[in-house]
Design a protein around this nucleic acid. Structure first.
Lengths: 129, 129
DNA sequence: TTGCAACGCGTACGGCTGTACGCGTAGAAT
DNA sequence: ATTCTACGCGTACAGCCGTACGCGTTGCAA
């Protein structure tokens, strides 16, 4: 297994945009940040550099513009991050977090039916194993 | 709203035990840590001190033993932490995280039926509002 | 009554994080 | 040619984090 340092909060915000937009320049990433979360251009630059040095991104120069893209799949990073949170805050149990999401954050009708489908599918698969 | 600094990862592990065991001494907290996550007694002590200075815990002296208890409800802290994660890593959307939990981490039969009940209840409530 | 073990408390320290400035340069505009 | 502008890159720096040592003290054992 590749030993990567974990992402910091700020790096997470940036890597998410990177997954969405890559390959992308610093400027493109910077502009794609949520409107309510403006950070300095140079800060984004630093985060991207750190993402690269931690092994989460790679980059090439296109002329004088540096183009970044992701080097780890979103799924992997999300798994590591969520697993870590579940371990620390929920003693490794998934259900309390699930419960919290549903009860505290709520879900709309569309989410509801999607969830039902997911559960059905899971039950079928579980049965045949 | 009370402006509390966010919890670090290490503090989270300790505050979770605190919710479970409080009021408790440093030693009790230390011993209640998961077996696979031993940290130094003094480290736990530092975390508790920091939890107190951040406003997450309070303490009194019982003789020469300092007894800690929680000052914020688990729900509040969990809400803040989960909201923060969802914002940073999932652009504020709950469903992708939900999907991840179900598909990647899996849930057992008991969880499955509990989830169904939750969904039913939610649907009923949603309908009457 | 003399140690010893347990504890609180102060302190430490290197690494990480958030945030950004400023220099030097290359391409665009005048 | 000269100036402006955008960009990469190095650097900075205070505060937070993980982790822990060691001193002084006190209650209990010998």
């Amino acid at each position: 297994m590749v030993e990567r340092p974990m992402l910091s909060k700020g790096e997470m915000e940036v890597v998410r945009i990177l997954w969405e937009k890559a390959p992308a320049s610093v400027r493109q990433i910077h502009e794609a940040l949520p409107a309510d979360r403006q950070m300095d251009f140079a800060t984004v630059q630093t985060y991207l550099r750190r993402l690269e040095s931690k092994g989460y991104a790679k980059s090439t120069l296109d002329g004088r513009i540096r183009i970044y893209s992701a080097r780890t799949k979103a799924l992997t990073v999300i798994r590591e991050t969520v697993d870590d949170l579940v371990n620390r805050l929920f003693a490794g149990e998934t259900m309390p977090l699930m419960r919290h999401l549903i009860e505290d954050r709520g879900i709309d009708g569309k989410g509801l039916s999607e969830l039902r489908e997911l559960l059905d599918r899971l039950e079928k698969e579980g049965a045949k194993k």
